[in-house]
Structure formats: C-alpha cells, structure tokens
Computed example of a mutant assay.
Amino acid sequence: MVNKRKGSAQKQGVIPEKAKAQFEILQRQLEVVFKNKALLYQAFTHSSYVNEHRRKLFTDNERLEFLGDAVLELSVSKYLYETYPQMSEGELTKLRASIVCEPSLVIFANELNFGRFVLLGKGEELTGGRERPALLADVFEAFIGALYLDQDLDTVVQFLARVVFPKVEIGAFSQVMDFKSQLQEMVQQSNNGLLSYEIIDERGPAHNRTFVSSVMLNGEELGIGRGKSKKEAEQQAAQCAMRVITEQQGEA
C-alpha cells in the first residue's frame, strides 16, 4: 500500500518565537510573504533539528527539496528556452546544468544569507552545518518548493527573475555560453560578412577594471558589452548582437 502521508507543513512543530522573528526578517528581505508560514519554516528545517525534537512533530525539508529541484529545473528551462531562441538543445541543456548545479545553488543561498535561518541540530551546528555546501543547496531547493506550494509557479519565476536570471544575463555562466561562436555561426548562415571586436573603453581602478567592447559587422556596430575582462566584454557584446539579429529577423 502506498503511504499517502504528505509530511505536510501542517504537522510542523511549534517554531521558537525568536526563529519566527528571524523568518519575518527573511520574508522582508526576499520581498515574499508566505500565506502558510509553516511551509517556510519547513523549508529551513534540517533533519538534524527534527531528530533532536522528535516529540514536537517537526518535518524536515527533504520532501520540499525534492519538489523544489523539479520546479527550479522547469522554471530555468522555460526561461532559457524563451530567452535564447538561437541555442540548440545541447547548449540549453549544458547551460541549465551549470545554473542548477550544487555550486551555483550554494552561491544563490549564500547571497540570500539562507544559512543564517536554517534550523539545525546542535551536532550539525557545531560541525559547521550552516556553511556546508550540500545543506545550503538543499535549502535553496526546499525554499523554491515551499514557495511553489504556497503560491504558484509564476511567483517562483518572479523570485528567480530577481535572484538567478540576472546572473545569466550578465554572463555569470559565460564559461558555458560561447556567444562569440554562436554569433559567428549566425552570421555565416546568413552570409552577412565579417565580424570584428574592439575594446572601446576601460573604466575603474586597475584592481576593479570594467571593459567595454563593441562588435561590428562589416564595420557597422551591432552590439556593445561590458565585463570584468576583455573576453567577458566581447561575449556580452556578441550576446547583444545576437538579440539585434534575432529581432531583425523577426521583423523581416
């Protein structure tokens, strides 16, 4: 017989008042208000905390993590599909994998200071659990799962549009996004001519330099990009040029 117990947030034990106050701060920081606060608490409840409070009916975040993993992958997939129409299936898969992998999720969680809010058992706390990469990645996925259940997919997408998608747009995952090669292929397919790149500006001190690159097609500027390195600036310029070409093709 299938066990239909949902491990729902309704069974979540009574959260300490101090922790509740912290979660109110978190919601303000995230600009998200949970209708069912118990779901939010559950997303940040580690199994070690549950094990130390067995009589209080706490529910850990593992099931929410399972759900959040799927919701995150769907949301990122939809965003990439709509944002990069020129990318092949293989390229989209590679880029998505770099966004939803553990190291990336840890970065997202750390930037949101999620580790501070996790409910941990004393043993896990003493061994540095709040900084453990796997735990932080799991909490981020669990939060996504909780947000989806509490509200809807559109709310999740709006949250990701503030936290994750801008990083894709500024080239944080450029190691798997070779826009220069993709732009070259687009130009070759249309037999449109010769591409060239030029660094047109450098800003900031030596230790924090920003480069501005221009990409030209047959001597005519097609896009401008900025980056912390010349390579990143060129990649951003190429991405900008690809958008221009895609828009022009859509208008033709």
Rank of each mutant, 00 (worst) to 15 (best):
S229R: 08
R130T: 03
I224M: 07
V71Y: 09
L195A: 02
L120P: 06
Y148K: 13
R63C: 00
K228H: 15
E65A: 11
A233P: 02
M216Q: 09
R96M: 13
G129C: 03
S77V: 04
S190I: 03
E91K: 12
V244P: 01
E220F: 14
G13S: 08
V244L: 09
I25H: 11
S104V: 05
V14L: 11
K231F: 14
A70G: 00
Y84W: 07
V2Q: 15
A97V: 03
N51L: 13
D150P: 05
V76E: 01
K18F: 11
Y84S: 00
K167V: 07
P103C: 11
A21W: 14
E73I: 09
F179H: 12
K228F: 12
G193M: 07
N61K: 13
K94V: 01
K56H: 09
V156I: 12
S47T: 11
L40F: 04
E247F: 10
Q42M: 14
C101L: 05
N208H: 12
I107D: 08
E232F: 00
E52R: 06
R54Q: 13
I144R: 05
K167E: 07
E17Y: 14
I245N: 05
Q27P: 04
L217S: 04
F114G: 03
Y148R: 10
I245Y: 13
S77I: 03
L95I: 09
L74P: 00
V76I: 09
Y79A: 01
K56T: 07
T246K: 05
K78V: 15
G171F: 03
I107M: 12
T246P: 01
R116E: 07
F140I: 02
V163L: 07
F44Q: 02
V50E: 03
Y197M: 10
Q10C: 06
L112A: 06
T93E: 08
M186K: 06
V244H: 02
E52H: 05
N110A: 11
L149C: 12
E251K: 15
E91L: 08
Q248M: 10
I15C: 15
F173A: 01
N218E: 11
N51E: 11
Q235V: 00
M1Q: 04
Q158A: 08
T210S: 13
F159Y: 06
K11M: 12
Q29P: 00
V118A: 08
E24N: 11
Q10M: 08
V106R: 02
R96P: 01
K231V: 14
V14H: 06
T155G: 00
E232I: 08
E31G: 01
P133C: 05
A21P: 01
